[in-house]
Amino acid sequence: MRAPPLCQMPQDALSIQHVSHSFGRFQALKDVSLTVPRGGFTALLGVNGAGKTTLFSLITRLYDNRSGRIEVAGHDLRRQPGAALARLGVVFQSRALDADLTVAQNLEYHAALHGIPRREARARSLEVLAQVELSDRLHARVSALSGGQQRRAEIARALIHRPEILLLDEPTVGLDVKSRAEVVALTRALVRGGVSALWATHILDEIRPEDGLVILHRGEVLACGNAGAIGGDDLTATFLRLTGEAA
């Protein structure tokens, strides 16, 4: 048995232990271990192609995890997939809302996929849209929303079944500076409210020193722990040095 990973903590919202994944001969993830503490904001930092989306696909069971172990709020993803997925809220990198339907219809659909009856879904829709400050767009078609609003609607969708952990796969990609700041601030507010978040990104200024940080590069975890402790005064320089991208 291997030694426990650097950042294992009690009461983890998400625990990933020794997970590897290959596409044919290409090994996308190599013995990845990381944890997301309950009520914490953890950034998964890596350049494009680092393996972030593959890792998310394994956590969400879009791909089958054949090695290692993934636990969501203490539920083994392989043995109790329903229980594990019920505790996950996911914001995918690409749009996952139905553009032809209204925000309310999308939220009710997603709630139904978690077995939440329609009446309760309506009440929860109002609740989560207030959280993401989109209450006035309840009956707007998704196609009529701006990019930033669509992202916030995606977050509302991911929250409607009251998950314990939010997975956000590069949620600010394609957004303007203002919308980006809003989405980051919104997620941090949710974390302060008790939700745990795993935030995949390649943008370093989205990370704060007090955040958890996992640096993923070419499918391997290079560093895992507190962002301030890993990055010191200059996270950019540390990241470039660790990934071998420094000039």
Partner: peptide
């Protein structure tokens, strides 16, 4: 478009 993922990450 990615909408399929919403369906497939359901606990059902």
């Amino acid at each position: 478009t990615g909408a399929m993922r919403t369906l497939l990450v359901s606990p059902f």
